[in-house]
């Protein structure tokens, strides 16, 4: 077997890495990842504070508050666990997390949390049963539009977080800098991309997978399809009032900076889905 230094990594043969950065030396780890990733955009400078590794996973698991999660999970500043990147990459198993929740919390108060774990199991089952559904519309859109009405590519202002809609740009900024977004923020962002901007869910799903540390093709893409309505009975959308209700002080929900999102559900429905019967 060919032995080499780290620089000769592009090879059709397996080349052992003989220089390993130490886990605790994050600057060295960063340099090594860059060296091992010659195809990476040199302008991509964002490094999440959330670290990989079994020790980080165990720390997160030990801090699990399944009861608090159930009570506040819909709020953007609620007691989310941030265990998902570790579950996504199999550092910890769903069954380990469930067992920990049941060990610490009475079943009734752990149920909401365990139901969220079951979503992950559900998506993975669908992935196994029908992998072709992951990138294709499971069903047709129920928005009054057909797939051809949606743009193929993600507009640049969305990719950069420069849409001019304040809270949307804040969510995008969080996605790009941390690699983590609260589930509710993911739904807002996905609905904005699919319905306000009429972009194919696939473009948004690929974008999320590039950035989310827990990005998993099944959970991510089928959730996008749920928002888009290609895997649900109706499209998911929201209004500014809903963001106000669930976000803390850190999200800018001022009317003048979020006008496209403002209005009643009926008004927004008519605006976004003009070909459908009014609600």
């Amino acid at each position: 077997m060919k032995q080499s230094d780290d620089s000769s990594i592009i090879s059709s043969l397996a080349v052992k890495l003989i220089m390993r950065a130490r886990y605790n030396d994050r600057k060295a780890v960063l340099e090594q990842v860059r060296m091992l990733s010659p195809g990476l955009d040199p302008h991509d400078q964002n490094m999440s504070e959330l670290r990989g590794g079994m020790s980080a996973a165990r720390t997160r698991l030990a801090a699990l508050d399944a009861s608090g999660y159930g009570a506040t999970r819909n709020y953007l500043d609620g007691a989310v666990t941030q265990l998902s990147p570790f579950i996504r990459h199999g550092l910890i198993q769903l069954s380990d997390v469930r067992d920990k929740a049941l060990a610490d919390t009475p079943p009734q108060r752990a149920e909401k949390f365990i139901q969220q774990l079951a979503w992950r199991d559900y998506w993975q089952r669908l992935y196994r049963d029908a992998p072709e559904d992951i990138w294709n519309d499971v069903e047709s859109y129920k928005t009054g539009f057909v797939a051809a009405d949606y743009a193929d590519a993600l507009p640049e202002d969305i990719a950069l977080g420069e849409t001019g809609v304040a809270c949307i740009d804040q969510f995008i900024g969080t996605l790009l800098t941390t690699g983590y977004l609260h589930n509710h923020a993911r739904l807002y962002l996905a609905a904005y991309v699919c319905h306000w901007r009429r972009v194919k869910w696939q473009a948004g799903a690929r974008w999320f997978l590039q950035h989310l540390l827990d990005g998993d093709p099944a959970s991510n893409n089928l959730s996008w399809q749920w928002v888009a309505s290609t895997f649900s009975h109706k499209p998911y959308f929201f209004n500014l009032e809903n963001i106000e209700k669930y976000s803390g002080q850190s999200i800018d929900t001022a009317f003048k900076r979020n006008k496209p999102l403002a209005g009643s559900y009926d008004d927004i429905y008519t605006r976004l889905f003009p070909n459908l019967e009014p609600r």
């Binding site: 990594i9 890495l17 130490r22 990842v33 091992l36 990989g52 997978l209």
Partner: peptide
């Protein structure tokens, strides 16, 4: 590259494997 993974994702994966302390091969 094919998946378009950002630096953040690659860091998370690399840190996770470093922490396992197993041989890493590139190719």
């Amino acid at each position: 590259d094919h998946l378009g993974y950002s630096l953040k994702r690659r860091m998370f994966i690399y840190e996770s494997v470093l922490d396992l302390d197993i041989p890493i091969y590139a190719g």
